[in-house]
Amino acid sequence: MASIVSRAGWGARKPRTAPTRLARTKGVKVHYTGGHVDPRIVDDHARCIELMMQIQIHHMNGNGWSDFAYNLAACPHGRLFEGRGFEVMSAANGSGLNTDHYAILGLVGNSGFTQPNSALLNALRDGIDLLRKRGAGPEIKGHRDGYSTDCPGGPLYAWVRAGAPRPDPLEDDVSADDLWHKARIKRKKGTLEEREVSPASFLQELEMEQDAQSVQLDRIEKMLGQLLAK
């Protein structure tokens, strides 16, 4: 389980107002920064702390919010940061949507450091599991689900759509890009088939597979009904 950097540990400002309590949600929504993240963040944890402080300043001074928007944040060093914390409403999912899901931020952007590494993905998963223990339901969604935005970016959204899997613990590092390809390994007649896919085609194929599985289940139900009728 990822260690948690407290608000005092990363130098968080005090919120302007007390957070709104929220004991239960449908699940968790995953976010990214939406801006440039210096690639050197991977080798320097101090840059994670600096980025957290910058985001809070933007949220409070730029957006006029009462505090850092997310419940938790995850960094490429495998650590979690306490944001608004547990059992409180976030301000990250969009107007009218914050009561449905808690929010967790991955410290990746749309330029610079864009591919979450295995440490960040594991920390995100740890954060989701912790939020589930404190009131979150089973849903894991991206910010773009139900809101017009690119967040959480292609790599993280593909990871979310793949079920937010943990990277292989036997591998030194696995990016979300690696997980696109690993998710396409299928068993066919006892053999493994692997194909290269792009993020967009991966998401499209996931949707097609879900439709195909639904059709297959309908066929199985009809067959069972025919057998029982005999």
Rank of each mutant, 00 (worst) to 15 (best):
R7C: 07
A8R: 00
A8F: 02
A8H: 00
A12G: 10
P15H: 11
R16T: 14
A18S: 14
T20Y: 07
A23C: 06
T25D: 10
T25C: 10
K26Q: 14
K29H: 10
T33S: 12
G35F: 00
G35Y: 03
G35K: 11
V37P: 04
D38M: 02
P39A: 06
H45Y: 02
H45P: 02
R47I: 15
I49F: 06
I49D: 01
E50L: 07
L51G: 03
M52F: 07
Q56G: 05
I57R: 15
I57G: 02
G64I: 13
W65F: 14
L72R: 07
C75L: 04
C75W: 02
C75M: 03
C75R: 08
P76A: 12
P76F: 11
G78W: 04
R79F: 05
L80R: 03
L80I: 09
L80D: 10
R84G: 09
E87L: 00
A92S: 08
G94R: 07
G94A: 08
S95H: 14
N98F: 13
N98C: 13
T99E: 14
T99C: 05
A103E: 04
A103Y: 03
V108K: 03
G109D: 07
G112E: 06
G112W: 07
Q115E: 14
S118I: 00
L121G: 05
A123R: 03
D129W: 06
L130S: 09
R134N: 15
R134H: 15
A136D: 04
A136R: 05
G137V: 13
P138R: 05
E139L: 14
I140Y: 11
K141N: 03
K141M: 06
G142Y: 02
G142K: 06
R144W: 04
S148Y: 09
T149E: 04
T149C: 06
G153P: 05
G153W: 03
G153H: 07
L156R: 05
Y157C: 03
Y157L: 13
R161Q: 14
R161W: 00
G163P: 10
A164Y: 08
P165F: 09
D168V: 00
P169W: 11
E171F: 00
V174H: 03
V174R: 12
V174E: 14
D177A: 12
D177T: 11
D178P: 03
L179R: 11
L179V: 09
H181C: 09
A183Y: 14
R184P: 00
R184T: 12
I185C: 10
K186P: 00
R187H: 12
K188G: 01
K188Q: 12
G190V: 04
G190Y: 05
L192Q: 08
L192T: 06
L192E: 09
E193Q: 13
E193P: 02
E196Y: 11
V197Q: 01
S201M: 08
F202K: 04
F202N: 01
M208T: 15
E209Y: 06
D211Q: 15
Q213W: 13
Q213Y: 12
Q213T: 08
V215Q: 15
L217P: 01
L217A: 15
D218C: 04
D218I: 01
D218F: 00
R219Y: 04
I220D: 04
I220F: 02
E221L: 13
E221S: 08
K222N: 11
K222F: 09
K222H: 12
L224W: 04
L224Q: 13
G225V: 05
G225N: 11
L228F: 10
A229T: 11
